[in-house]
Computed example of a mutant assay.
Amino acid sequence: MSAAAAPHVVVVGSGLAGYGVLRELRKLAPDASLTLVTHDDGHFYSKPALSTALAKGKIADTLITTSGEKMAAQLKLDLRAGRMAEGLDREGKVLLTTGGPIFYDRLVLALGADPVRPPIDGDAAHLAIAVNSLDHYREFREKLPDGARVLVMGAGLVGTEFANDLVTTGYKPVVVDMLGHPLAQLVPAAIGDVVRDTLAGHGVEWHLGRKVMAIHKHEAGGLRAQLDDGTEILADVVLSAVGLRPNMDLARDAGLTVGRGIKVDQTGRTSDPNIFAIGDCAEYPQGLAAYVTPIMAAARAIAPSVLGTPTDIRFPTLSVQVKTTTYPIVLLPKPVGVDGQWRLTDDGGAGLKYLFVDNDGATRGYVLTQDRCQERMEMDKLLIESLRETAA
């Protein structure tokens, strides 16, 4: 596409998804007009690194890889930092922001996801911190005294990684989750039990099958949480890690089609042909895809689609490394809505190996632990070949 024909592209959101699309756009259209709108400073950093930053001795400022100003210079874009996207005039193709209207030819929504805020009673419920951004992490560290007792609400991926990070750096995490074992939606119970016992051996306190009902300020300082069975937990800080919800208010209010996220087709296009969505806010035909690998794959396809060459997103095998250094795990989650069972195929001294086998006998997911994590590439290759054979 020539520079004269290149559209003015506005991207909302400065996370990995937003910057991923902008990088790909700049490669394809060196002279295109690109504008980035973000409510924060536009600094680039790795969000997955937030749950391992303590062990690496990182504070918020040292997690920044590249400042917003440098990113703007490198990508030759107009950075509109500190601006909230308030609405869309789709007919006029105008993004309404707190800094005024911005006209676009194509718009890319990289809005991310917002932390789920469970209903909790008590005069200190609002003090629970959900760490989903650099600013959130800064607040968390500022409120974290040395050796603090930290109540972690949620034992999913983020909550378990934070528990590992906290306990290996001298803090005292207490984890509460309604389900029966850590990583319950990702791994079979037997592996969840090993994760629980391993972290307990390092000092993590678990309250599984339980729910936080209220958080109160404690008379002697700190916080007092009450569980549904009457148990009281004293803590210096409460970290909420109960999940994320795709940010789709802007899209919904503008009349775009939404479901679990902003619905897009295989090219990343929404129900409006001039608007695309990517990352944690997007619901692809395959469903939500909130990890780094699918974001980068989507960016490589959405950029040419935005510039007028529709390109299908081709997601690679979406395996995940769980950052629990006390008990390493690599997994490929079982597909949502697919029935089957986890089967233990190896329990040798090198680690555990489970395969998720669907009702048709096809392997659709896996979990590797400890030294068996090295088999990740081999397993990904086998599953790709298996899916191709099934499709044929």
Rank of each mutant, 00 (worst) to 15 (best):
A3D: 10
A4V: 03
A5I: 01
V9S: 08
V12Q: 01
G13V: 00
G13T: 00
G18W: 06
V21F: 08
R23E: 11
E24P: 08
E24C: 06
D31M: 04
A32K: 01
S33M: 01
G42I: 00
Y45W: 12
S46R: 01
K47I: 04
A53P: 12
K56A: 14
G57T: 02
A60S: 07
T62P: 04
I64G: 01
T65G: 06
K70S: 01
A85T: 04
G87C: 09
R90D: 05
G92T: 08
G99D: 00
G99R: 00
F103G: 13
A110H: 12
A113R: 05
V116T: 02
P119I: 03
G122L: 02
G122N: 03
G122S: 04
L134N: 02
H136Q: 07
E139L: 15
K143Q: 12
D146L: 14
G147I: 05
R149V: 09
A155D: 13
A155S: 10
G156E: 10
L157P: 10
T168W: 06
V174A: 10
L179R: 15
H181K: 02
P182G: 03
A189P: 14
V194T: 08
A200C: 07
A200F: 06
G201L: 04
H202Q: 07
H207Y: 11
K211S: 14
V212S: 07
H218N: 15
G222T: 09
A225N: 08
D228N: 13
G230Q: 13
T231I: 12
L234I: 05
S240M: 04
A241C: 12
L244R: 02
G255F: 13
V258M: 10
R260N: 12
Q266V: 12
F276S: 07
I278F: 11
D280I: 04
Q286W: 12
Y291K: 11
T293A: 08
A301Y: 10
I302A: 08
S305L: 07
I313T: 09
V320C: 06
K323D: 02
T326I: 03
I329N: 07
V336Q: 11
G337E: 06
D339H: 00
G340E: 05
G349L: 13
A350S: 07
A350H: 02
K353Y: 07
L355G: 03
F356Q: 09
N359T: 15
T369A: 04
R372S: 04
R376P: 15
E378V: 13
K381F: 15
E385F: 08
